[in-house]
């Protein structure tokens, strides 16, 4: 089986990279690589609902926030919570939530996001129309409002800090590899085909016996699960989280990545994540105060103007992005024939 050999080689190379990356790159570069890795996890899972299933959603920042908060609360020790919660005492639930295991903390974050995704699916997917986008957009704001108004859980606007855990690229790289493989396994199965059929023509999919509600919900929950885990990783990487951190900006960056890589293409998403993240770093100077004598706050204004123009231009002139909805390997298959 050619594909077995090919897949094994791919996995071996990926594992080798994850294993040796820490030795090769310095700590600043490793931080960037970790960040890119986490964004790749988020973008891959975002592409499942947006690209493969074709349901326009703006959920990532909400689910990332849920994953980040659950993971952070689980990893913080009881004493540090008591010290940290300045506005009100932490709720007993918060105090009782603790684990020393990063894996468990991440999983709980992922599962929490998945459950919320299921709850959002009920109102949104039972009706036709594009309500998913607006409901998920609203949900991102609700999470923030909830976090600010419930300091006994979240320490309010002050957020949580000193989220300490010995994270390294083994975690980020390993979870990225797993996410990538899971996504491809879904796409190349009857579930992935059903998701694509819903994207292409919902009525025809229904006429083939596909339960479109179930398929959309499944895709949405899967995206949420990995976004929750990605959120946990992000919290551990940057060690400080506040409600304002998970703004729509995060979702917008992921949207650009997914669109640029090609809606529905996982390998395209990987490539685009690197391009966009490195591009964002490279264009950071644009947001320096007083460039062009304009905007003076540390808000990514001009950079975001450029990136939103890129998004619009891609949509208008190159809707399929880098790889369309195909994977890199599909191109090799084609050329062999």
């Amino acid at each position: 089986m050619g594909s077995l050999v090919r897949n094994s080689i791919f996995i071996a190379v990926a594992v080798a990279f994850i294993y040796f990356a820490g030795d090769v790159f310095g700590s600043y570069k490793m931080f960037l690589i970790n960040t890119i890795g986490i964004y790749a996890i988020l973008a891959l899972s975002y592409n499942l609902i947006n690209g493969v299933t074709g349901q326009f959603s703006l959920e990532p920042n909400g689910f990332v926030a849920i994953g980040a908060y659950f993971t952070a609360i689980l990893l913080l020790s009881t004493e540090s919570k008591i010290d940290m919660y300045a506005l009100v005492d932490p709720s007993p639930i918060v105090l009782s939530m603790h684990t020393g295991s990063l894996a468990i903390a991440l999983l709980v974050g992922g599962v929490a996001a998945t459950i919320i995704a299921l709850l959002l699916s009920l109102p949104v997917f039972r009706v036709r129309g594009d309500y998913l986008a607006i409901v998920t957009l609203g949900f991102g704001f609700i999470i923030r409002i909830f976090a600010i108004n419930n300091p006994e859980f979240t320490n309010g606007a002050m957020g949580l800090n000193d989220i300490s855990s010995s994270i390294n690229f083994y975690w980020v790289g390993g979870i990225l590899l797993i996410t990538f493989i899971v996504m491809l396994n879904i796409i190349y199965s009857k579930y992935g085909r059903a998701m694509k059929s819903v994207r292409d023509d919902e009525d025809a999919a229904t006429a083939m016996g596909i339960n479109t509600f179930k398929i959309k919900t499944l895709a949405f929950m899967t995206s949420a699960f990995f976004e929750g885990i990605g959120g946990g990783l992000l919290a551990v990487l940057i060690t400080t989280i506040t409600p304002d951190q998970f703004s729509f900006l995060l979702t917008f960056q992921l949207l650009i990545i997914v669109v640029l890589g090609g809606l529905g293409s996982m390998s395209g998403t990987l490539i685009a994540t690197i391009l966009v993240m490195v591009g964002m770093e490279a264009l950071r100077f644009l947001d320096e105060p007083n460039i062009l004598g304009l905007g003076n706050e540390a808000h990514p204004g001009l950079r975001m103007v450029i990136f939103s123009v890129i998004l619009i231009v891609v949509m208008l002139f190159a809707r399929r992005g880098l790889l369309g909805d195909r994977e890199l390997l599909d191109f090799f298959k084609k050329s062999k024939k």
Binding site: F56, G295, P300, G301, L311, M315, R319
Partner: peptide, 29 residues
Amino acid sequence: DAPKISLLITAIGISFFLENLFIVLFGAT
């Protein structure tokens, strides 16, 4: 005549563009 999702993505792009353009022009405060 494009798929619906392209239109929605473009719409969110326009929204983000206007917001950030006005941030650049008038500041975020």
